[in-house]
Design a protein around this nucleic acid. Structure first.
Lengths: 223, 223
DNA sequence: TTTTTCGCTGACCGACCGGTCAAGTCCGCA
DNA sequence: TGCGGACTTGACCGGTCGGTCAGCGAAAAA
């Protein structure tokens, strides 16, 4: 992906340019993720790549374009990545697959993910921000469609769809703040736990496998 | 809000200093929240306050101290604020109160909240960051204690306590990314919806009556 | 009155920022 | 052998950054 110009013939002998671009994008992801847009300097990125700062401007017009290539690109890919991993089948299984696929994307493109999610407030360019939000909305609307599908199939209650979607996305979007790749749990496993918690709820006495006939007395005081 | 060039603001005496400090903190909150630590300049803050940049350094040693006063202070207050609003009673009601209280804190100290939550990665000072994490942990451990309490009381299933806590906190911590104060729902109502979703789960067929009724969200829209 | 205190300022500093440029190097091709 | 073009660089620019400082002016203290 992200192949650009330099050689139209596609011969692999001269792959220097695109390798550099890929290297720069890779380092830029990490640095933007850790320092944010304003905190990361082009010098930081150049030093991390082991190249001169001028070479950065040979491959990218300016700091903003480099930033956009990192953030907009990954936001765009996220939707396609997830969509292709949601199978046909029961709607609730689709929701679960949506969550696990998002977690897999997070695991595989972690720094770009973090740079993208952090980007929201810090981006000085309104136009790029709007473009990113549009792509983000497509991803979120896809989840809302799955939830509506599950409601119509009778698999989940008639909940507030946008709110249910936000709950699911919040859990996934916040993961990068506490996830430790050295710990045992993989992001996919984390997403699986979240799905169980959100789908089945915390409340006791209604494990999904057996039917729950005994009605429970009211706990909370009604108004 | 408080326009002042030469006192006369309730007291003709020496309220200048602390008023200035409060004003600076108020403006700094907003600017740090919107631009992040690196993106916000001391000049920005000085101009927003209508004072010279030098006066900023008269009241605060440097940028980092001003930043810490905003972020560490609000993180610290959050725990005390929430703790005082969790009543005695059924553990699940405590969890709900915890969530609503957090939402209330968010509504009342929105900019400081955003600055604090955004601060995580961007903070250059490791020591301050560690201090903030310690205070944050106290807040998170408080929630985990409530969850364990609810498990022992048999009100919720034997779930993974840290994960359940993370799910709840994720939903609240992500709220600032999409919350619009001009829209109908208050943060407290949002927290209430989240509690219902997390506590009762999405799954259909086992609605429990004591679910909290207060918010009346518009149901999903027709296709 | 004189002195002290203190909120407050404009001017200034060195460092670093994003970005530019002329020029050098290397390589495929004629 | 020469030519053209992509890759790469060090030096440099105007501007902004965080931070400093001598001193102003009015109120409090003497």
């Amino acid at each position: 992906m992200t192949e650009m110009s330099t050689t139209k013939d596609g011969q692999p002998d001269k792959a220097d340019g695109s390798d550099r671009v890929a290297q720069i994008l890779s380092e830029a992801e990490r640095i933007f993720a850790r320092k944010g847009y304003a905190g990361a300097s082009m010098r930081d990125i150049a030093v991390a790549c082991g190249i001169s700062k001028a070479l950065l401007y040979h491959h990218f017009a300016n700091k903003e374009e480099l930033y956009s290539r990192v953030t907009v690109g990954s936001t765009d890919e996220l939707y396609l990545f997830v969509r292709d991993r949601v199978p046909s089948g029961p709607p609730s299984a689709k929701i679960r697959a949506f969550m696990v696929a998002t977690a897999e994307y997070f695991r595989r493109y972690r720094w770009a993910w973090i740079a993208s999610t952090t980007a929201f407030w810090n981006d000085p360019d309104r136009h790029r921000q709007k473009e990113r939000m549009t792509r983000r909305d497509r991803y979120e609307n896809f989840l809302r469609g799955l939830i509506e599908e599950a409601i119509e199939a009778g698999e989940i209650r008639e909940v507030d769809v946008p709110m249910a979607g936000r709950l699911i996305l919040s859990s996934l979007n916040w993961m990068h703040r506490w996830y430790n790749p050295n710990k045992a749990m993989t992001p996919e496993q984390i997403a699986d736990v979240y799905f169980d918690l959100v789908f089945n709820g915390l409340r006791a006495g209604d494990i999904s496998l057996p039917a729950p006939p005994p009605p429970k007395p009211a706990r909370r005081k009604p108004r």
